[in-house]
């Protein structure tokens, strides 16, 4: 499979990365080069193979339902949460107005 300019434009839009026409043109052969190279995987016979789920055999651990048990993963830290925000007002993050 290979991509054309329109495909790359669509992918870039899905990935929310603005690209100029010139960048698009440059990206098409680059991405096609990479895609052509990874496509050799298609030749591997994977009949009956289960896709890898856990890299090292391990199962999901569950935590107790306790609020702020660990301050590093708990709430009540609004100042810290907002400290790096480009726009924070009245305790909220600010973004350009969204029309739903």
């Amino acid at each position: 499979m290979s991509v054309n300019t329109a495909d790359v434009a669509k992918i870039a839009s899905l990935a929310r990365i603005k690209v100029s026409e010139a960048q698009l043109e440059a990206m098409v052969p680059e991405l096609n080069g990479i895609l052509a190279w990874v496509e050799q995987l298609g030749e591997v016979d994977v009949t009956g193979v289960t896709p890898m789920t856990a890299v090292i055999p391990n199962t999901l651990r569950l935590r107790d339902d306790v609020v702020n048990a660990d301050p590093l993963t708990g709430g009540d830290i609004r100042d810290a949460v907002l400290a790096n925000a480009p726009v924070a007002e009245h305790g909220f993050f600010g973004v350009p107005k969204v029309i739903e």
Partner: peptide
């Protein structure tokens, strides 16, 4: 995450990293 779920809290107070 460990932040609380109660309804009606002040904005962004029940938010963890």
């Amino acid at each position: 995450s460990g932040s609380a779920t109660a309804f009606g809290a002040e904005p962004n107070t029940q938010v963890s990293l």
